[in-house]
């Protein structure tokens, strides 16, 4: 069993959802995660707040801070989750259930977590 990270991206994180929409979306997200957790395949995860995001970068040998993740990177990270799966295909199946994919232009990136000892 390997661990995979599901990276949830929103096309536009600056769009503000109504509280009702948020609530529906939260419930769907919880049901999605609950289904994975019920199979004992959930490791952990977090949602990320869109407000006040920053990117620290280095330009011409100077460390600068860019306000908001909405600069160079079009798609905004909305959260992530780590799952256990036998293969990337199984992890992709989990990813397909994500409510994030209801939004046009949104995506879920699936990446295997590197072993600490560098064996893979």
């Amino acid at each position: 069993m390997e661990e995979f990270m599901l990276i949830l991206r929103h096309q536009d994180g600056s769009k503000i959802a109504s509280p009702e929409q948020m609530q529906v979306w939260m419930k769907q997200t919880m049901d999605w995660i609950g289904s994975i957790a019920a199979q004992n395949k959930y490791v952990g995860g977090n949602g990320l707040l869109f407000n006040g995001a920053n990117v620290v970068t280095r330009k011409k040998d100077k460390i600068t801070v860019i306000n908001g993740p909405f600069g160079d990177i079009k798609e905004t990270l909305g959260g992530y989750m780590i799952v256990k799966a036998d293969s990337i295909e199984e992890a992709i199946e989990f990813a397909k259930g994500s409510p994030v994919l209801q939004g046009e232009g949104n995506s879920v990136e699936v990446r295997q977590i590197a072993h600490r000892d560098g064996t893979r």
């Binding site: 609950g34 957790a37 019920a38 199979q39 959930y42």
Partner: peptide, 21 residues
């Protein structure tokens, strides 16, 4: 359902998985 979702995220157990379902 929501409480079982949270419970499973915190700690898996077969009985919680069944009750959630």
């Amino acid at each position: 359902l929501s409480l079982y979702n949270q419970l499973l995220m915190l700690e898996y157990s077969p009985i919680a998985a069944l009750n959630r379902t």
